[in-house]
């Protein structure tokens, strides 16, 4: 299912995707294949949702304000609360997790005030309190996540 080219593209371009007029041609030259093969393989990865996107990855909080937010919502209300939260354009990620705090999402807004307003609105509309966990330090190491790729 995954060709050697697919695997190389997945593993080797988690950083240093070329910033050049013809990045796919550059990759093709690095890997000894054609530009067309690279484009086709990336399209396949993208269609199969094995890559979520190609592009710049932004450092957290470098533009706008963001926070991780947790809520403890009883099972009988979880579905509608989760749906209501996911509908906010400011909410980027929303996960259900196994814990008393069972709803975890990341809210991003253009500034702190807007972020606070969104959180207050969520508390008001859902009737549940939030636990706001902004990032205090980011222990970031510039290494890709090592993927184990079979087929």
């Amino acid at each position: 299912m995954l060709s050697p080219l697919h695997k190389q593209l997945l593993n080797d371009y988690q950083q240093d995707f070329p910033l050049s007029p013809t990045p796919y041609r550059d990759i093709a030259e690095q890997l000894g294949v054609t530009e067309d093969q690279v484009l086709r393989a990336f399209r396949e990865l993208s269609e199969r949702q094995l890559i979520s996107r190609i592009g710049p990855v932004i450092a957290p909080n470098s533009i706008g304000s963001s926070a991780l937010v947790a809520m403890a919502v009883p099972d009988y209300d979880l579905e509608w609360v989760a749906e209501m939260i996911s509908a906010y354009p400011e909410v980027n990620h929303n996960y259900e997790r196994e814990n008393r705090f069972n709803l975890w999402f990341v809210a991003v807004a253009d500034d702190e005030r807007h972020l606070r307003a969104v959180i207050e609105d969520i508390e008001h509309r859902t009737g549940y309190k939030t636990m706001l966990l902004p990032m205090l330090a980011d222990y970031y190491i510039n290494l890709g996540f090592e993927l184990e790729l079979h087929d």
Binding site: Q15, F17, L19, V57, A59
Partner: peptide, 26 residues
């Protein structure tokens, strides 16, 4: 566009340019 992306990489706004794997689907 490329110059501005490069500048944002230098000043840390952009961390990297990546084909971002979807861990769940993998």
């Amino acid at each position: 566009v490329m110059q501005r992306i490069s500048n944002m990489q230098q000043n840390g706004v952009i961390r990297r340019i990546a084909a971002v794997p979807n861990h769940y689907k993998l």
